[in-house]
């Protein structure tokens, strides 16, 4: 089992190498094509004379030729050490390390919540197919899906933060967090409720539709009829024979959605002032900070690969056939 997982991980990582290289070259080319460099971006905010601009270009290595800069950049990418970010003036890996946990927590919670809510509601809709409840759930899901996530976020902001004052307006923790691990965790959770809910609700419809469709399909399958013929209790048939196989497409979609969710978190992090990877990415692009952009993109790529790996493992658990075929048994 361990060697199999190990092999799967190794294969996935190897597959990722060309992807990462292509992405890295693409970033460099795109940023080169755009007018202006990191020094221009910086001076737009501070002003400065010719000597100042020249000194910064020299210090940040922007006075070197295109080829030299490209080679230095690719070397940094290959070595997985992106050097110093000019926008935040610290090593790129430190900058990402500071922001990644928040984004992981927010995204992880949002993914699980949206999938859980989506599957449960989708299941309920499937069991009430064609009735009022089915229609209601479907419409609500679609409306939420059609809503831009920043708008939903702003609605929450106006209603729940400014008017009702139920939730804090920004950040991931209070300025002076309460003592004790549990109290601190609750403080963070309280801050993350709205960003997570915003992300989860907008992505929920997808899972809802998938689950509903898959359950209706499986409900009509032979093994369900066989189970009914054997006189199994209705609840057990729904759980074991309809819902479990219907979860497969949902799990597949979880993996595919991670990238989208990372993009969505940029917007939601901005609305709720969450100091995560998304707001860092925004700053990096705005400041033309090539090393930082490359680092964040790579972190995102690795994240998507890891999530898809987890999805594969979950697959093996949900669908024994997958595990069997991979372990080489007939």
């Amino acid at each position: 089992m361990h060697t199999r997982v190990g092999r799967l991980v190794a294969r996935r990582l190897l597959n990722a190498i060309p992807v990462i290289l292509i992405v890295a070259v693409g970033i460099f080319v795109l940023l080169e094509l755009a007018a202006g460099d990191a020094v221009d971006a910086y001076l737009a905010g501070t002003g400065g004379d010719a000597a100042f601009a020249e000194r910064l270009r020299r210090e940040w290595g922007l006075d070197r030729s295109l080829v030299v800069r490209f080679l230095a950049y690719m070397e940094a990418v290959v070595a997985l050490d992106f050097g110093r970010s000019v926008a935040v003036s610290m090593p790129v890996l430190d900058a990402i390390g500071q922001r990644l946990p928040v984004t992981l927590l927010m995204m992880g919670s949002a993914v699980l919540l949206s999938a859980a809510l989506g599957s449960v509601l989708g299941g309920i809709a499937a069991l009430h197919r064609g009735r009022l409840l089915d229609g209601g759930i479907t419409v609500v899901g679609l409306v939420l899906n059609a809503m831009p996530n920043f708008w939903l976020g702003l609605l929450f902001m106006v209603a729940l933060v400014v008017k009702l004052e139920w939730f804090p307006p920004f950040g991931v923790a209070s300025l002076t967090p309460p003592p004790g691990f549990l109290a601190r965790a609750l403080d963070v959770a309280w801050h993350l409720v709205l960003p997570v809910l915003t992300l989860a609700l907008t992505y929920m419809a997808l899972y809802l539709r998938l689950m509903r469709g898959a359950m209706i399909e499986t409900a009509a399958s032979d093994w369900v009829r066989a189970a009914e013929a054997r006189g199994l209790p209705r609840g057990r048939i729904i759980r074991r024979h309809i819902a479990r196989p219907a979860l497969l497409p949902v799990v597949t979609m979880l993996g595919l959605q991670t990238g989208n969710l990372l993009g969505g978190s940029v917007v939601v992090e901005t609305v709720f002032s969450v100091p995560g990877l998304g707001s860092l990415a925004y700053e990096a692009v705005h400041q033309r900070d090539l090393p930082l952009i490359a680092g964040i993109l790579l972190a995102g790529t690795v994240l998507v690969i890891v999530v898809n790996l987890l999805v594969d493992l979950a697959y093996a658990w949900l669908d024994p056939r997958v595990a069997d075929s991979r372990s080489g048994r007939p």
Binding site: V162, P168, P169, F170, G171, L175, T270, S273, S279
Partner: peptide, 20 residues
């Protein structure tokens, strides 16, 4: 003095209103 980093203008207005 604490400077909260709030790049979003809407968030700043909301935080003024709530007293944060």
């Amino acid at each position: 003095i604490v400077y909260r980093v709030l790049p979003d203008a809407g968030a700043k207005a909301a935080a003024l209103e709530t007293g944060d």
